[in-house]
Amino acid sequence: MKVAITSTGNSLESKIDPRFGRCAYFVIYDTETKVSEFVENPNKNASNGAGPASVQLVADKGAKKIVSGEFGMKIKSILDSLSIQMIVMKDPQKSVQSIIDMLKQ
């Protein structure tokens, strides 16, 4: 299964990005192959609808779970209809690696 993690940078040491739609990078982590793919978020500075556009991006990548600090109102119903689970991670000090470690357990 693939999990999308919002990241402030493009390395595993980067901290989690607290925002979903306007995060700097998405890390698409595959729990089976253990491969992490970094995707720069093209919606970072979108004037409108960064949330739905970012859902489209991670859904295209096949993610079934998203780990981020916060999710906006507009995407809740879309995620529900796609059966994508939201996981809220409130600790902004967490690195992408430490979240992947938690997913492995």
Binding site: N43, A46, N48, G49, A50, P52, A53, V55, Q56, A59, D60, K74, I78, S81, L82
Partner: peptide, 16 residues
């Protein structure tokens, strides 16, 4: 305005 959400493989299209 990113008001149309579309996932062609899953045949999902939504207007926000």
């Amino acid at each position: 305005y990113n008001a149309i959400f579309i996932l062609p493989p899953a045949k999902i299209i939504k207007v926000i």
